[in-house]
Computed example of a mutant assay.
Amino acid sequence: MSSISDNIARIRENIFKAAHGREVKLLAVSKTFPCGAIAEAIKAGQLCFGENYAQEAVEKVDFFHLNSPTVPLEWHFIGPLQSNKTRMVAEHFQWVQSVDRFKIARRLNDQRPLDLPPLNILVEVNIDEEDSKSGVSVNELEDLLPELMTLPRLRLRGLMCIPKAQASELAKRKTFAKMKTLFDRFNNQGFKLDTLSMGMSADYVWAIEEGATLVRVGSSIFGQRNYSSKI
């Protein structure tokens, strides 16, 4: 059974081969995994972590802030965000990848502490138009991006998507390519986006080959999740 360190090394090698000289960030998705597993990843040089559940995430952020205050960890909130959780996210995270409406963005902006730099945000796009998924449609994106640029405590960095889970390689590549086209289009309009977050454990290599600049990998690093466990 390979260790977390071995898994990270293997994934980084895969990223390097797929990126062909481009810089691609690895986000270790640590939701449901304990602080001990995150500490192992940190020892392997991984400093960027993604969390889905606000309360669980804040406990981890506070733990490492108290126990490893000099380690420059970067925390990304990547799950659906409810209005009653925006304050804790605004106060503890450097990034939010799941902004999908202006109401949530405005709350994050208003609740971001003044002693912290602007909160980096990505807009989640429901690129495959799935009824069960969060995210804005492509048409809604046209209106939302200019609105986000008016919020001074947020910094719009790019786009994020989650393709259909059971789709074929060809279908996922088409989704990733569509996202890259969208990303380029808004950059050509002057939005200066630098982050395209797409690709997870099962498909991150395809996502990189189609233009991702950040991939979100969890189970391939930490193993299978036990959602019944209490962190």
Rank of each mutant, 00 (worst) to 15 (best):
M1N: 07
S2T: 14
I4Y: 13
D6R: 03
I8N: 02
I11N: 02
R12T: 08
N14C: 05
A18H: 09
H20N: 10
G21W: 03
R22I: 10
A28V: 04
V29L: 14
S30Q: 02
T32D: 04
I38F: 02
L47A: 03
E51T: 05
A54S: 14
Q55V: 09
V61Y: 06
D62E: 13
F63Q: 03
P69R: 01
P69W: 00
P69E: 02
P72K: 01
E74T: 14
F77G: 03
Q82D: 02
E91P: 00
Q94H: 11
K103G: 06
K103M: 08
R106T: 15
R107N: 15
R107Q: 15
L108K: 01
Q111G: 02
P113G: 13
P113V: 12
P117L: 13
L119Y: 02
L119V: 08
N120P: 01
E129G: 00
E130N: 13
S132D: 09
V136I: 05
N139W: 08
L141Y: 11
E142P: 05
P146L: 07
L151E: 14
R153S: 15
L154M: 10
R155D: 07
L156W: 04
L156V: 12
L159D: 10
A167S: 15
S168K: 08
M179D: 11
T181P: 01
R185L: 10
T195C: 13
M198Y: 05
Y204I: 15
V205Q: 10
A207C: 11
I208W: 06
E210Y: 00
E210W: 03
A212C: 13
A212W: 02
G218Y: 04
F222L: 11
G223R: 12
R225Q: 09
K230Y: 11
